[in-house]
C-alpha cells in the first residue's frame, strides 16, 4: 500500500471526521471537473455525490469490506462517486451524454446506493434524536455503534473507570432515547 492509502485507512480508524474532510479536499476539485466534463454534472450535484462517496468509503472500511485498494484511493473514490451520480441521475430521469460507443452509461450492476440519510418514520425520528442528543450519550453511542469501538476502548478514550461503567452508561443512553422517542410520538413530531 502507498503512504496515502495507509494514511487514509489509519486516519479513518483514529479520526474519521478529520480524515474524511482531508481526503474530500484532496480529490474534490478533480472529481467535480471530471464529473462536469464526462456527465455535464453541475457543482451542486457532483459535490453532493462525492460527499456520499466519502461516506460510503468510510462505511466500507468500517465494515471490513475494504482493507486494501486494488488500484488507488482515487480510482476507488471516483468509481463510487460515478456510481452514486449515475444512480441519482437515473432516479431523477436525467440523461447523461452518449459515450464513445453511442450508449448512455449506467451504474455498475453490483452497485447499490445505500439509503444513507432517510428511513421510515420511526427511524427518521430516532435519527433526529441522535443529531440533537448531548454528551456523554452522543459520544458513547457514536463510538460503539458507528465506529465499532469495544467497551474497553471507549473506557480508555473517554476516561471511564472500566468497560462495565461504559456499558451501564450506554444502557442509560438507550433508555433516554426511548424516552425522548415516546415523547415525540405522543406529540407526533
Amino acid at each position: 500500500m502507498t503512504n496515502k492509502e495507509v494514511d487514509l485507512l489509519e486516519g479513518l480508524n483514529k479520526n474519521p471526521d478529520t480524515t474524511l474532510v482531508k481526503f474530500y479536499n484532496v480529490y474534490r476539485k478533480e472529481f467535480l471537473s471530471w464529473a462536469y466534463k464526462t456527465y455535464g454534472a453541475d457543482e451542486d450535484n457532483s459535490s453532493d455525490c462525492f460527499q456520499d462517496a466519502m461516506i460510503i468509503l468510510y462505511k466500507n472500511v468500517r465494515a471490513g469490506k475494504l482493507t486494501e485498494f486494488q488500484s488507488s484511493v482515487k480510482t476507488y473514490l471516483f468509481s463510487i462517486g460515478k456510481n452514486v451520480l449515475l444512480t441519482k441521475f437515473k432516479a431523477a430521469q436525467r440523461l447523461v451524454p452518449l459515450n464513445e460507443s453511442g450508449n448512455r452509461e449506467i451504474a455498475d450492476d453490483n452497485f447499490e446506493l445505500p439509503e444513507l440519510y432517510e428511513g421510515n418514520l420511526l427511524e427518521n425520528r430516532i435519527a433526529g434524536i441522535i443529531e440533537s442528543i448531548q454528551n456523554p450519550c452522543k459520544s458513547i453511542l457514536r463510538y460503539f455503534y458507528f465506529r465499532g469501538f469495544s467497551m474497553e476502548e471507549i473506557a480508555i478514550e473517554m476516561n471511564y473507570k472500566n468497560a462495565q461503567t461504559v456499558k451501564s452508561q450506554k444502557v442509560r443512553c438507550i433508555k433516554e432515547i426511548q424516552h425522548l422517542l415516546q415523547r415525540k410520538m405522543r406529540i407526533n413530531i
Binding site: L20, D52, Y117, L122, I126, A127, E131, R142, I177
Partner: peptide, 23 residues
C-alpha cells in the same frame, strides 16, 4: 432494529453535514 438503523442514519447525517459545510 429501528434504533440501530436510526442511529446509523443520524450519524450519517452528521457526517454529511460536516462535508457540506466543508464544500
Amino acid at each position: 432494529r429501528s434504533l440501530l438503523k436510526g442511529l446509523e442514519l443520524g450519524f450519517n447525517r452528521e457526517l454529511k453535514s460536516l462535508l457540506q459545510q466543508e464544500e
